[in-house]
Amino acid sequence: MLEKEELVSLYDDLAKKICLSDTACKQVETHFDTIKDLINSNLIEYFGEQAEIKTFPQGSWSLGTTIKPLRGSDDDYDVDLVVALSNVNITASELKANIGAILKSTKEYVGKVEEKGRAWCINYANSHIDIVPSINNLDGSICITDKESNGSYTYLKSYPKDLVEWFKNKSNDNSSEYDSDLKTKPIHSYQRFTKLQKVVRILKQHRNSTCKDINEKERPISILITIIAAELYDEHDKTLLDALTTVTSKLETYLSNHRNTDGKYVIVNPVNKKEIFTDKWTDHPERQAVFLKWADQVYYDLILQAQTLDRVEYATKMEPIFGQYVSDFYEQLGKKHEDAQAMGCMRYSKADGVSFENNDKGEKFVRNTFWGN
């Protein structure tokens, strides 16, 4: 069984390591600016000066929960950029086609543009940006284009700004304000990251690692992981480990409580009750099965195993999930403990276990040397 202090340090470190690198953040910001200028100039030329165009990130980037892709380098990324138009009258198919034509006709993006159901994807080696065409609504929501299975296009209502505010309230986070003008907001505008943001990152990393061999459409979707984590989060938890334990230990109960009388799981968008994130589970039961298995596994992997395994065993189990970051942490921890022992800072108490910090907790160990006192 590992000491709590060690686990607290481990997960604090892992949450930092799986963040996008500074280089990736700067690359994304540059790409955002380039794409924004490209699309704005072309659409204004097409629709005229009366058109108003806002471009802004959504999803994990705006929520502060983006992590490095599982495959690729530390400088890779996967983010969404919304293009929202006002004062124009255009169908979903026309809007989607126009944005696609602009991207495909640009020399920089030739051969890199791929259509998805609700976006155009620009692929950069192991990174990509999804461009989501949409229309601005007076109530602050947007209508995004959606390609249906029969090939036709329609608009779907979405509330990205409201979702960010809801998530911030759940985080009890007042460190930054979302851009009310819906302009591009760099991830660096977050002065700090809350425990909830870190919990979501760790859960997504676990999902990416444990479900990497499963069909992408069957894997637990990020928005569902994010919403559930936010609803289970307890702002009174003192450490990231405490928060992670609270969320993962309650997943099974949460899912059981969100089954209707027909036995179907119903988990809705908290800012748009008409949007049901689990609605496709009925037609695709394999997605439900994968999510339920993941929800059970994440608690066992991250929390329960730490209560029964020793350091070496637990590190061995964690490496397939977090990679080299686990080895790096324990290498640094060993050096820290060695230095603490040399300085006489090693202590023990029943409440906190072994501590290597320079504090008054517990009884101080007498340094043991081969030459005696």
Rank of each mutant, 00 (worst) to 15 (best):
W61L: 14
I276T: 09
T316P: 01
K116C: 03
L182H: 07
I131C: 05
E45L: 09
V312S: 13
Y190N: 11
L38G: 09
Q58D: 09
K336E: 15
L240P: 07
G323H: 12
F370I: 11
H236C: 04
T194E: 12
S41H: 09
M346H: 11
K17G: 01
V354C: 10
V83F: 10
G72W: 13
T91C: 06
F322R: 12
V79W: 08
T245W: 02
I214K: 12
T210R: 13
Y77W: 15
T194N: 06
T316N: 13
R287C: 14
Y265G: 00
G140T: 11
K161V: 12
L302E: 05
G362Q: 04
K364M: 07
D213P: 00
N172A: 05
T245Q: 06
K364F: 00
I131D: 01
T194P: 00
K185S: 13
T194Y: 07
V366Y: 00
R347I: 10
G372Q: 07
A125D: 14
D237G: 02
L81I: 14
I99C: 08
S249H: 05
D146I: 03
G353C: 10
R201H: 01
S171N: 11
I35A: 04
L240R: 05
Y348T: 05
S105M: 03
L224I: 13
S41I: 08
L163C: 04
I131T: 08
K112R: 15
G353E: 14
Y77E: 14
I214Y: 04
N169D: 11
D146G: 04
V247R: 03
T245I: 05
Q307R: 13
I221H: 08
E3S: 08
M343E: 15
I223W: 11
N169M: 09
S152Q: 12
L182T: 05
